[in-house]
Design a protein around this nucleic acid. Structure first.
Lengths: 241, 241
DNA sequence: ACGGAGATGTCATAAATATTTCATGTCCGT
DNA sequence: ACGGACATGAAATATTTATGACATCTCCGT
């Protein structure tokens, strides 16, 4: 049998789309399929988002009020740090002609809407496979996380995680020792307005622990009562009475 | 007369809410969690407040008599000096659809009410993370408190505390040497309307001491007879008032 | 369309820890 | 020595977490 088909997080997509309904649809659809999704209603918001965050790919609506997709793309191509960000356009079929111009301006491809989630997914996958930047391998104690392969190892042994647990660990490893409240985790893993029972976090933490801690190994997840959880190596013995 | 009880504020929040009960609830809840809170009953008042003061984030009710939250937000976005003020909406679940439009008008997010204080807190924290620096490590004598990691050490050794003792020490470390009466402590750790035996404080102080003071170490908690307790290094003169 | 595999979100329940209250013993200042 | 204020240990409660089992759902190959 072949090792891990690992259907984990597949990349961070920024969706820039002015029409609320479609935006929501795209967000849901992509999130459903395991992408981390950020959305912006217009080019301006998108740019300010890109100031602080670097997604793996941007999905731009072609026609937008204000800064159009084309302009946004051009702007992106001018920013030194963003030059390599893959850009995919969403266009109406009638605009297909114009898009040729878009490709000249640095886009990496386009899709005509409406388009199936499958098609979009396939396109993104292809794009990400080709252009996803090489990210540094993160380590913490015996843990190693290779963003590129979505591969995690503990003391050399591969660790299999589901998508959610992967993102959880990823967040932890980017912020070692930091305590995240359950609310924080909900916010950062599920998004701002997703309603999920707060205790569901416990379950994912348990799954993460189970996968991470082999027999006899120390628990790398620290429970901070009344506060949350953190990735931590040395647990001291309790001193309280 | 009474010196201002002061711990480091986590940020300045402007709450704009027309319903008095909810407004008060929000104000208390946020204040309790360490935010500096300003309130306004309507959009007009809010704007005039913003003429002179610049909070870190605005929390707007969606439906309000007079200037609605949406209009207020739009107005804010038009004022040069306020353009960057993060705006968060409070909406009823039934209004959720409309809010998508709100996001197009410059909001940074929304919360559906009723929503737990925890959730609100998490949301605010996420917003403020962008504009406010990470919390600093506090030290006092041999003590170190890292809010980020929920970690306390004395002379390098980790100190394990329960939730209440942690908050107690946190308060003390924000106000070194200051004497807190038991009533003060009850008010600030338990909240305004909680009935707990006043002597319970003693028990928590004892546990804090026990955890803090290893064998042979000096007691860092000073008992001020008939007055309360304070965090204090052992060398302070016993001269009392 | 059908069935299996993998993921997720929820619960109910067991386990672990914390918090409060008490009953008593100590210490302090007068 | 006395009265009031503190310190302490232990028991009774209350809260918070950890777990195992499920019911759904989505994805995929047939």
């Amino acid at each position: 049998m072949t090792p891990p088909p690992q259907a984990a997080t597949r990349g961070h997509v920024l969706v820039v789309e002015d029409e609320p309904a479609l935006r929501l649809l795209l967000e849901r659809s992509l999130h459903q399929r395991g992408y981390q999704v950020s959305v912006a209603p217009d080019g301006k918001k998108a740019l300010s988002f890109l100031e602080t965050t670097r997604p793996d790919v941007a999905l731009l609506d072609w026609m937008m009020p204000g800064l159009s997709g084309l302009e946004l793309c051009r702007t992106i191509r001018q920013k030194p740090g963003l030059r390599d960000l893959p850009v995919l356009f969403l266009t109406a079929r009638t605009e297909e002609q114009d898009v040729i111009a878009g490709l000249d301006n640095g886009a990496d491809g386009y899709l005509t809407k409406p388009c199936s989630a499958d098609r979009l997914d396939a396109r993104l996958r292809a794009l990400l496979r080709r252009t996803r930047p090489v990210q540094d391998i993160i380590t913490f104690g015996p843990l190693t996380l290779e963003p590129e392969n979505h591969q995690i190892t503990r003391s050399g042994r591969p660790v299999m995680l589901g998508p959610t647990e992967y993102r959880l660990l990823e967040l932890f490893m980017h912020n070692p020792r930091r305590v995240f409240s359950r609310e924080d985790l909900l916010e950062r893993l599920w998004g701002p307005n997703v309603h999920v029972e707060i205790r569901t976090i416990d379950v994912h933490i348990r799954r993460l622990r189970k996968a991470l801690n082999g027999a006899g190994e120390t628990d790398l997840i620290r429970t901070v009562r009344a506060a949350g959880y953190a990735l931590d190596d040395g647990h001291a013995s309790p001193a309280a009475g």
